[in-house]
């Protein structure tokens, strides 16, 4: 299963780099949905010896939520707000890719400084998680469209979830449910606010959000 795990983790990183280096918003949402599905399958390959019902339920919930429900919400927001598909990043796509590559290296560097927890399954989990978190932050701060910022937040959450996988067996199910529910509600409220912003400003570019300044 080690190979499957590594493959899935590499897909996670590739999805990040795709978002950092590509133009159309719809393709980016699909990439993040794909990333969500890869993450949803990870617990099954990471913990092959303890494939309990608990684990299957998590996997199913994650694939459904991150792979279909949340991307669906974002696509609906695009459709309702008739958003143009270009992303208008504040840095060029090449620079974005370059910074993304640096962050992958940084993720491996930081993870190397921390002792590897037991039962991690694969030594790549921690570096992939950390670099995904950092790339999510990069997307948030370098994108002008608030929908892309929400997408960056999703990538950040995916990174944190990746890290959480090494604990999957140790965490109580109730907490996982709570975390998932909060993330879902958060994205739902963000979607609503995006719609309102579009109605009010006639645009969802964060450049318009400059009334409140020192």
């Amino acid at each position: 299963m080690e190979h499957v795990t590594q493959l899935l983790l590499i897909l996670v990183i590739l999805a990040n780099l795709f978002v950092l280096g590509s133009h159309p918003l719809g393709a980016c949402i699909r990439a993040v949905a794909f990333q969500g599905i890869a993450l949803g399958l990870l617990p099954l390959s990471l913990h092959p010896e303890e494939r309990s019902i608990h684990l299957f339920v998590i996997a199913l919930g994650m694939v459904g939520l991150k792979g279909f429900v949340i991307p669906g919400l974002l696509f609906r927001a695009i459709r309702d707000a008739a958003i143009r598909k270009e992303q208008e990043p504040l840095i060029g796509f090449n620079t974005g890719l370059f910074l993304g590559a640096i962050l992958v290296g940084l993720g491996f560097g930081i993870a190397g400084k921390l002792p590897l927890p037991p039962h991690t399954g694969s030594s790549m989990v921690v570096p992939v998680a950390l670099s995904t978190v950092m790339m999510g932050l990069l997307v948030i701060v370098t994108r002008a469209k608030i929908l892309s910022q929400a997408l960056g937040y999703l990538i950040l959450e995916n990174g944190i979830y990746t890290f959480g996988l090494i604990l999957a067996a140790g965490l109580p199910g109730l907490i996982e449910m709570g975390v998932l529910l909060d993330i879902f509600a958060g994205i739902f409220i963000m979607g609503t606010v995006i719609e309102h912003i579009h109605r009010e400003f006639g645009s969802i570019s964060a450049h318009k959000l400059v009334n409140l300044r020192e």
């Binding site: 608030i146 937040y153 606010v193 009010e200 409140l212």
Partner: peptide, 10 residues
Amino acid sequence: SLEATWKYLL
């Protein structure tokens, strides 16, 4: 208030 809400949420 919409702008403030977005910044707060994000």
